[in-house]
Design a protein around this nucleic acid. Structure first.
Length: 201
DNA sequence: AAAGGCCTCAACCGCTTGTGG
DNA sequence: CCCACAAGCGGTTGAGGCCTT
């Protein structure tokens, strides 16, 4: 989806791109391109992205190939449904390291820095905005630490006991929550819409 | 049923950092 | 030490899908 700015054809693009690199493709990857990239990496391995792009016959920059591979094609990449545990982890790690997305991602197996960054921007920052405070403000950090994180933990525990203990017993969820926990998908997906941070408050 | 608005996330860009000559 | 190139990182963009009116 994307930045189609100069999409595959030259026309509207700024010439400079074309000059140096021949006609490079941009925008969404096709199934065929994905296939080529996967195949090439399967036999030759990663690395040397610029030459990889050339050798694989892809009309893409090395950067583009690298990104596509790391964020989407890698076999171990997980997408969608950021779990409660992952959300908690993200909050914790972000409070420690700030916007060091790749560093944070290292602690969330299968998650990419891009995905975590998107998560943070679309949900956390949005919420800060609603509270009319800056994500970096003490107020926001405190809210996160003393309100949202404990609630996340409660929900994680509640979910755990709900699954382990028989389902019947409506968990003695300490949950402060009035609006039930409903969709466990704070994390993702379009259907997400309202089902985001509202749950935490 | 259609229109408009909002949300998500893939992919881009520019800058920084790392590495080799 | 300096320069050039490659890789990595964080910020930003915008197409497309979903929801609401």
């Amino acid at each position: 989806m994307m930045d189609v700015k100069g999409s595959s054809n030259s026309s509207s693009t700024t010439h400079s791109d074309e000059e140096m690199t021949g006609d490079l493709r941009r925008g969404p990857w096709t199934v065929e391109e994905d296939f080529n990239l996967i195949n090439y990496i399967a036999t030759h391995g990663e690395g040397r992205w610029n030459s990889l792009a050339r050798c694989a016959g892809l009309k893409r920059t090395g950067k583009s190939c690298r990104l596509r591979w790391l964020n989407y094609l890698r076999p171990d990449v997980r997408r969608g449904n950021i779990t409660l545990e992952e959300q908690l982890m993200i909050l914790e790690l972000h409070s420690r390291w700030g916007n060091r997305w790749s560093k944070i991602a290292q602690h969330l197996p299968g998650r990419t820095d891009n995905e975590i960054k998107n998560y943070w921007r679309t949900r956390v920052q949005k919420h800060a905005k609603q509270l009319k405070c800056d994500v970096n403000s003490k107020q926001f950090k405190d809210t996160m630490r003393y309100l949202w994180m404990p609630r996340l933990i409660e929900r994680i525990q509640a979910a755990a006991s709900a699954t382990s203990a028989s389902p019947a017993a409506t968990v003695s969820a300490p949950a402060t929550d009035h609006h039930s926990v409903s969709n466990s998908d704070v994390g993702t997906g379009k259907p997400g819409h309202g089902a985001t941070w509202g749950q935490w408050q």
